[in-house]
């Protein structure tokens, strides 16, 4: 079945290190996306038409553009156009943060505008100040709406890191390919075993995250 190649040398360890590379890049990007996404998402709720056009444009642009094209533009394009010699990992983090921020901002905007205006008013009518209203009434509700959705985004980002091997980063999928190539003669069936293992590794990373999301959703259903 081709699983035996994983026991050769330190192949399994290399695969796990590949997972770590993918995870490291996605986690840094997720953190940046959450912070910037909350910021931009809040700005998007303002009624200012200029802000609306700019943020909508940014969001649509990022959504339409395939992530791989975006990776190529930033990694190869920036070197030529701006004379910027970006390391591949930095380029990936930039691209994934640009994407994550756009998606996150839209989620934040949706969650914020989804809270009815009269919730603010009923809080105000009890004598709570604007700050207290946000702290105790609005933000806790926004977070409850946001977390299941943003966890979904996080798993999507982790899965999409499989693209970064295209700009030369040796993450889990690339390591898998290398192992298959190196054992082409001795284990012609390695492809199945190795890719199945890669699949299981992605599953092992993403499954707990999506379970957590399901649990929170259940706990907070209003």
């Amino acid at each position: 079945m081709g699983f035996e190649v994983l026991l050769k040398g330190n192949n399994m360890l290399r695969l796990l290190l590949g997972v770590w590379t993918a995870l490291r890049i996605s986690l840094v990007s997720v953190l940046i996306s959450i912070v910037l996404g909350i910021l931009i998402g809040s700005i998007m709720t303002l009624k200012n038409p200029v802000i609306k056009v700019i943020t909508r444009g940014y969001l649509e642009f990022i959504r339409i553009m395939p992530q791989m094209v975006l990776l190529f533009i930033v990694y190869f394009g920036a070197t030529k156009a701006l004379g910027l010699n970006l390391p591949a990992e930095a380029a990936s983090i930039i691209v994934f943060s640009l994407w994550g921020t756009a998606e996150m901002a839209d989620l934040v905007r949706g969650a914020l505008t989804g809270i009815p205006k009269i919730q603010y008013e009923s809080s105000a009518a009890l004598g709570l100040t604007t700050t207290q209203t946000y702290t105790y009434v609005i933000i806790p509700q926004v977070i409850r709406r946001l977390i299941p959705l943003s966890i979904n985004l996080i798993t999507r980002m982790i899965k999409t890191t499989s693209l970064i091997m295209m700009i030369g980063i040796v993450e889990v999928l690339k390591v898998g390919q290398q192992i298959i190539e190196a054992n082409r003669k001795s284990s012609p069936n390695a492809a199945f075993g190795v890719y199945a293992t890669v699949f299981l590794l992605y599953f092992a990373v993403c499954r707990p995250i999506s379970l957590l999301s399901k649990r929170l959703e259940k706990k907070w259903e209003n």
């Binding site: 008013e121 009923s122 009890l126 004598g127 509700q141």
Partner: peptide, 16 residues
């Protein structure tokens, strides 16, 4: 508003 209470048509309890 501390001193003037108000109750709305749609209750507006805090759902969380």
């Amino acid at each position: 508003r501390e001193k003037i209470g108000m109750v709305f048509q749609s209750y507006e309890l805090f759902p969380h």
